[in-house]
Amino acid sequence: MRAGQRSALVEIQRNVPVRDESGQPISAWQTIGNPVWADVRHRSGMEALRGDTAVSVVQVSVRIPYPVLAEVAADTSMRLLCDGDVYEIQAVLPDRQKRRHADLVCQQIPARAE
Rank of each mutant, 00 (worst) to 15 (best):
L49G: 12
I32T: 06
D20Q: 10
R14G: 01
T53R: 00
L80C: 14
D83S: 10
P110R: 13
C82T: 11
L49S: 13
S7Y: 11
I89R: 03
Q5A: 08
A111Y: 06
A102R: 08
W29N: 04
T31F: 02
H42W: 09
A102T: 14
A91C: 05
V72G: 12
G45N: 02
A38M: 03
Y66G: 08
R79W: 03
I109W: 06
V86H: 01
D83W: 04
E114M: 15
W29K: 04
P67S: 04
D20L: 08
M78Y: 05
R41N: 11
T31R: 06
E47D: 10
R63D: 02
A38S: 02
D20S: 10
A113G: 11
N34M: 14
Y66P: 07
L49T: 14
G45L: 00
N34I: 09
I109K: 06
R19T: 11
R43A: 12
G84F: 10
E21W: 15
E71C: 01
A73G: 13
R79E: 01
S77A: 12
V55E: 00
G84S: 07
I109D: 07
Q108H: 11
I109L: 09
S22M: 12
I32W: 06
R50P: 01
A54L: 05
P67N: 05
P94H: 10
V36C: 06
A111W: 07
A113I: 10
S56F: 00
M1W: 01
T76K: 05
R14Q: 03
L93E: 14
V68D: 03
D52A: 01
D20I: 08
I89H: 04
L93V: 14
